[in-house]
């Protein structure tokens, strides 16, 4: 479904990605894990069209994403929850959700999708007229995910959704993500919470210093010696 091949990407003169290749198949939940500054967010920026790679190939359902701009990529069915959620704090919860359904196709089904998002996350309905900036950390993250779902994505890309959440909420978050995936949305999940991510994912990639250094099923990687020592203590 999504395919990255030999991506090199730079910030100015600084090379951040070195020949990244990865695949996500329809229906899968794939995790991309790695330490701080490894290049996870950068990889997602390339997918979203926010950063043009110097070399390589990005394909989604047979379409060349490098020829598309950010908003076109969203309308192809890739929805991203950026690092930190990035909700619009000065707008109401409802407005945030409405903006999630901005692309024409999603807009047609807006009311229906809204109901199903409300059903999954009732707290958002309760708070719908409140400014998003007044939500708690967990609620914000929920809003960010709900907002991304409003576009009825084929592929949902999440950048560290568990970051900064209280431990109980982290577990809930992973349950939520599994639920979304079970309902038929393909998921690419970036996480620093390696153990939890590897456990829920069908397949995972390990990225370090801008390079993919490992790939396998969650269980495989958990037994991967270097991963154990590096991330799991």
């Amino acid at each position: 479904m999504l395919k990255l091949e030999n991506i090199n990407a730079y910030y100015g003169d600084l090379q951040a990605l070195w020949g990244i290749s990865l695949d996500v198949n329809e229906g899968e939940l794939v995790a991309l894990v790695g330490p701080n500054g490894a290049g996870k967010t950068t990889t997602l920026k390339v997918i979203a069209g926010l950063l043009a790679p110097a070399a390589g190939l990005v394909e989604f359902r047979g379409q060349d994403l490098l020829k598309k701009s950010v908003h076109q990529i969203v309308s192809l069915g890739i929805s991203q929850v950026p690092e930190g959620g990035r909700i619009f704090p000065g707008m109401t919860v409802l407005e945030n959700l409405e903006l999630g359904a901005f692309v024409p196709e999603a807009r047609k089904a807006k009311d229906q999708t809204l109901q199903s998002v409300y059903k999954s996350y009732p707290i958002l309905e309760e708070r719908s007229d409140q400014l998003a900036g007044t939500l708690s950390g967990g609620e914000r993250q929920m809003l960010a995910i709900g907002r991304a779902l409003m576009s009825k994505p084929r592929l949902l890309v999440l950048d560290e959704p568990s970051f900064g959440l209280a431990p109980i909420l982290v577990d809930q978050m992973f349950v939520m993500i599994t639920e979304i995936n079970k309902q038929g949305v393909t998921v690419l999940l970036v996480e620093q919470n390696v153990r939890a991510a590897l456990e829920v994912a069908h397949r995972s990639y390990v990225i370090e210093n801008g390079e993919i250094v490992g790939e396998g099923t969650g269980v495989d990687l958990l037994s991967f010696e270097s991963i154990r020592s590096a991330y799991l203590g």
Binding site: A48, V70, P82, R86, P89, M91, L99, S151
Partner: peptide, 16 residues
């Protein structure tokens, strides 16, 4: 308004 608040996030909503 979304663009004013955070243009990058707005772009990720599919806003041109």
């Amino acid at each position: 308004r979304a663009t004013v608040e955070d243009w990058e996030a707005a772009a990720l909503m599919g806003i041109n």
